[in-house]
Structure formats: structure tokens, C-alpha cells
């Protein structure tokens, strides 16, 4: 790592710590039952934000790498929307099971991945097919969610109502993801090579790609159950870090995760406190915050051209 890279990592990390502390203690003195608020509301929310950042960043790196399509993430191919739709369905049909929404979201994300793998992933070397096909699916799920939630007035896109049970499930899912990660992450860099070359290196690419995609879909599905879909967040974070650090896939992962966590923390801080005590939807704030980042990315690309 160069000094510049170390510095930016340090800055992002410090930013995360600052925002985390800020979220825990800001405006807490005005509350009489402040201990309860920290333990029951602010702490689980904070931990869930960390998991959300991890999920958005990591899933984008993993999907872009294994599909060899840099400009792609889990929101653009319908994995996030699939999880969101499932939660909307559950809300209408069996609302009592919503306490397990994180687990349900993870399963939905994975089912969505399997659906994609049996259909459009088969043509993954046709870029347009993958991107347009994926987006169609995402939009279809989105439309269904809108129809379903229109009458119920369901609005679950804030992190304000995160429970310890949500955090527990997310932690468990993350743990499983880490086990898969440890077995497969050393192959991550080889996805920069053409398939013909990984084959000749004797790598069982199909198996590795499946494992890495399962991590991505499970994590993204889990956090989307609470946060809702944030279109393009993953791809922006992944590409911005790539342009800025010039690091390869595996070396980039910690940067992407920390940057993504920073974004989520920032978005939720704004969502939580800017019109305190009124909450804004976290996913919408995140999208707005990432818009300038997206513009920066476009500018860098245009300069490269």
C-alpha cells in the first residue's frame, strides 16, 4: 500500500468512528431515559448500519468480479428488489413473521440469485443482455412491491426500527458469509483474467463463483429487508474506490467496505438527526449522498476517454 492509500484508509476509518460515536451520544442529554435509548435503539441501529455498509460494498465487488462486469451490482440485477418484494409480500400475508425479516430477506436474496443464475447469468458474456435483463427483473419486482404496499401504507425503509433480533440474524448471516469468504477469497483476483485462463490454472471457477455470489446475495438480501433497495450504491462505491486507489479486486475489498460503511453511517446520521426527531428514509438519503460521488466518477471516466 502506498502512503496515499494508507492515508485515505485512515481518514475513512476515523470518519466511521466519529460518526458512530456521534450517533450514540448526539442529543442524548435531553432524554431522561438515555441509557435505555442507547441500548435499545441507538446501539442496534448502529451495528446494523455497519452490517449494511459491509453488505452493499462487498456484494458489489463480488458480483462485479464473478460476472466480469465492473459496472454492475446487486441492486441492478434485481437481488435487492427481490428481497424487498418478499418482505412486502410477508407484510401483507403473514405480518407476524416480520420479526425474522433479516433472515427472510437473506433467503429471498439467495433465491433471486438462483433464479438469475438459471436464466440471464448464462449469457453473462453478453453485457447488454445481463444489464438490461437484470434491470427488467429489478423494475418488475419494484413495481410489484409498489402495488403491494400501496394500500397497506407500509414504509420500512428507515433503519429507525432495527431490533436486536435483526442485529442477531445479520450477525449470524455475516458469520456464515465469513466462513464462505475464507474458503474462496484467495481466488478473487483470478476473476480479472478471462475464463480460458482460470480454467487453465485449474480453478473450479463455477464453484468459487457460486460461493462468492451466495455471500453477496445473502448479505444484500438481509440488509435490504430493512433498508430497502438503494440503486447503484454498490457500483458507485466499488468503481470510485477502483478509480481512486488503482488496487486489484482483492486488495480493494477493505477500502470498498470501509467507504461503504462510511456512506451508510453518514446517510443514517443525516436521516436520523437533520430534522430530529422526524426521521427521513435512510435509503433515499444514501442515494442523494452518492449522487455527487457518481458525478465524480463520470468526470474521471470522461477525462480518461
Amino acid at each position: 500500500m502506498t502512503n496515499k492509500q494508507k492515508l485515505s484508509f485512515g481518514l475513512m476509518f476515523s470518519g466511521c468512528i466519529f460518526l458512530a460515536l456521534f450517533q450514540l451520544i448526539y442529543k442524548i442529554e435531553s432524554q431522561s431515559d438515555w441509557q435505555l435509548i442507547i441500548i435499545q435503539l441507538r446501539l442496534p441501529r448502529l451495528i446494523f448500519e455497519l452490517g449494511t455498509g459491509l453488505a452493499i460494498g462487498l456484494s458489489a465487488v463480488l458480483l462485479a468480479a464473478t460476472l466480469r462486469q465492473p459496472y454492475l451490482d446487486g441492486s441492478m440485477i434485481g437481488i435487492a428488489s427481490g428481497s424487498e418484494l418478499t418482505i412486502a409480500l410477508i407484510t401483507v400475508l403473514i405480518p407476524a413473521s416480520l420479526i425474522y425479516r433479516v433472515l427472510i430477506g437473506a433467503v429471498a436474496g439467495i433465491l433471486c440469485l438462483l433464479l438469475l443464475r438459471s436464466s440471464i447469468f448464462k449469457y453473462h458474456n453478453r453485457v447488454l443482455f445481463l444489464i438490461i435483463g437484470g434491470f427488467c427483473l429489478a423494475m418488475f419486482f419494484n413495481a410489484l412491491t409498489t402495488i403491494l404496499t400501496e394500500s397497506s401504507g407500509w414504509a420500512g425503509k428507515s433503519l429507525a426500527n432495527v431490533t436486536w433480533l435483526d442485529v442477531g440474524w445479520l450477525a449470524l448471516i455475516t458469520l456464515v458469509a465469513i466462513v464462505f469468504w475464507q474458503k474462496n477469497s484467495r481466488y478473487l483476483d483470478y476473476f480479472a483474467l478471462p475464463e480460458l485462463q482460470t480454467k487453465q490454472l485449474g480453478i473450479d471457477e463455477a464453484k468459487v463463483a457460486l460461493s462468492l455470489q451466495l455471500i453477496a446475495a445473502g448479505l444484500l438480501g438481509a440488509v435490504t429487508a430493512v433498508l430497502g433497495t438503494v440503486f447503484f450504491a454498490g457500483v458507485v462505491v466499488n468503481q470510485l474506490i477502483r478509480e481512486y486507489t488503482h488496487l486489484g479486486i482483492a486488495a480493494r475489498v477493505p477500502f470498498v467496505i470501509v467507504f461503504s460503511i462510511l456512506d451508510v453511517l453518514l446517510a443514517d446520521t443525516v436521516a436520523h438527526f437533520i430534522f430530529y426527531p422526524t426521521e427521513l428514509p435512510t435509503n433515499a438519503v444514501l442515494l442523494v449522498l452518492l449522487a455527487p460521488a457518481f458525478l465524480m466518477l463520470l468526470m474521471r471516466w470522461s477525462r480518461a476517454i
Partner: peptide, 9 residues
């Protein structure tokens, strides 16, 4: 022809 899909030196 070989393509490289990500940053790699």
C-alpha cells in the same frame, strides 16, 4: 485476444 476485467499490473 485476451481481456483483463479489472485493475491488474
Amino acid at each position: 485476444r485476451s481481456e483483463v476485467y479489472d485493475y491488474m499490473t
